[in-house]
Design a protein around this nucleic acid. Structure first.
Lengths: 341, 341
DNA sequence: CTGTTAGCGCTTTCAC
DNA sequence: GTGAAAGCGCTAACAG
């Protein structure tokens, strides 16, 4: 690995000059610039990013920490984050928190130790207390995706999670369903809570009494959706529709229903959330709510970048989901119940 | 952000001493160590990783570049890579090549500019020429996942891609199938080529003549699998079994078949590769080949780490897939053809 | 236009 | 045990 001084010697100039041609700053006579370039070329010289960053005290990079590499979300998220960063000519450092709040917290700190210019966090786990202390410790801007804050600690980009559920329940009810089963995601996360609250609230708006036997709590995932749905079936409580809090669970539930000989959507309508590509290719294709993950991610990165440059940004922005109608929902009156009502 | 000198002043010691307690190197009297720790604590001091790396000329990190954040593979891959790196107390830097060989090449160089201790590459795109020049430019070890090399340029960890297809075709043939349609992945990649060659070779071994009308080339993905399968159906060439070169395409094909009123597996058996979790939850569940992505990834990281420490490692290692039997394959004699043979 | 000279924040001999 | 000093490779005034 050749260094800047190797280039200096070969080109017969000073470090300052080489630095100038590396960065295209200041004035350099064309002839000497060419000489320097030739020298760099000949040596296969590449600046040491570490040294540059240390000297400049900025890294031209942004850090992203996600809870883990699980779910459909994060593929889109990483993809968009990567694209947005590239577009801004920034490096993107991705770290996962191994789905553990303490590790997430550490990951953020380590990103700051690396002197990222800004950090974006998409966390399911991190606690309010941790965010509070981060507020003290952090000197670089942090923006949160999918996390509503009561106090304006950090900039946030959120989804209307409650609205997503509400939209779908409304849709189901408009189709005449009233006994709507529900498989929630983990209630330990803000997202889970918001969605579950919306489920209950929306039912209440229609004066449909909440039936705890109609809801199962599960971790996201195909198998968990399957299992939860089996429990529902074995519970022998009639329902004409089923909302799973994400598409994977909905897909698992579909399988459970099918295995049990209950036909979807003829006997029970099902719905999910996320607009997982697979919902389009299951039989029946599953109605779902599309959450604009890419847009939100792009926006979060943009905000982080602006903040890094010292600009000011709106403190929070929210994205809404949109209903995607497919084949898994039929009007209630045409459903042949799988269990007596 | 406080620096080491802030700690020095507060603790009334020299940089050397602070450095010693940071790294736990050398001898420091307990009392002064405690004083230093107290000072660090009080200031919320955290060492600047950049400066440490520059001084030590090692970053304690390993770089991973993948083609893009697409497909089922890479989720497992990232997850395992992250776990393996963490276990070795190394930071993991993940970069994607935006599915473009030039960008991948650049990504590798940038990782080296960042002075990663080693680099792991999982590329679909990068060319032999680029690898050749990398061989010249790179001073850090590079290990390739899923890339067979004719010359021993770099250490490799590969999958027996041909064997995976062969295993499945054998399985199909043992079930009496002979007209086996095929939806290949992109033939521009080594993986695609190996798999396609195996398809042809295996048929030949059974003296089954290759029928080009029975094969469609597609990009991986649900929709592409769907479309390719439609073409197959519309081609009106009889086949009793269908192998898609990945599970997503198989899932798409299943949908196409279902939409066309052809029942799986009664009328046509289908199979995929990857052991995508979804194949277990489709109806019918799809038989597939499980590729030990996690094991291979873990091994690649380990090799990279060893190489970084100057140890020597076996130059190449190969992992084999295993057949996962599910419900999508039935013996030929019991299939009711969807088209006259 | 170009070179000199301080750093950036930390590690690491080498003395004391 | 601890400190002084010389870097790591590069940038950024400041002169000239």
């Amino acid at each position: 690995m050749s260094t800047i001084v190797d280039v200096c010697k070969l080109a017969g100039v000073s470090k300052a000059t080489v630095s100038r041609v590396i960065n295209g700053t200041g004035q350099v006579k064309k002839s000497t610039r060419d000489a320097v370039k030739a020298a760099m070329e000949q040596l296969g010289y590449r600046p040491n990013t570490l040294a540059q960053s240390l000297a400049r005290s900025e890294t031209n990079s942004i850090g992203l920490v996600i809870s883990d590499y699980e779910g459909i979300y994060f593929g889109n998220l990483l993809k968009q984050a990567s694209a947005s960063a590239e577009q801004a000519h920034k490096e993107l450092f991705i770290t996962d928190g191994h789905n553990d709040s303490e590790r997430e917290y550490e990951a953020i700190l380590r990103l700051q130790d690396r002197r990222c210019d800004a950090i974006v966090l998409y966390s399911r786990k991190i606690s309010m207390e941790q965010l509070q202390t981060l507020k003290q410790q952090l000197t670089v801007p942090l923006v949160l995706i999918n996390r509503e804050l009561s106090e304006p600690l950090f900039h946030t980009v959120t989804f209307d999670q409650g609205g997503a559920v509400k939209t779908m329940i409304n849709h189901l009810i408009s189709y005449g369903h009233r006994k709507i089963a529900c498989i929630t995601g983990p209630l330990s996360t803000p997202t889970g809570q918001a969605r579950f609250a919306a489920y209950q609230d929306t039912l209440k708006q229609y004066a449909i009494s909440f039936n705890p036997n109609l809801v199962k709590h599960a971790q996201y995932g195909l198998q968990n959706g399957y299992d939860a749905c089996r429990e529902l079936i074995e519970g022998n409580i009639a329902f004409s529709a089923l909302l799973a809090f994400n598409d994977e669970m909905a897909l698992g539930a579909l399988k459970a229903l099918t295995d049990a000989g209950i036909s979807v959507p003829e006997q029970v309508s099902i719905a999910g959330i996320d607009n997982n590509p697979m919902t389009q290719f299951s039989t029946p294709a599953i109605s779902t709510i599309d959450l604009p993950v890419k847009e939100a991610t792009n926006h979060a990165i943009k905000v982080a970048l602006s903040l890094a440059e010292g600009k000011t940004c709106p403190f929070s922005s929210q994205y809404k989901g949109t209903l995607i109608q497919r084949d898994s929902i039929l009007p209630f009156n045409s459903t042949k119940n799988w269990l007596a009502y």
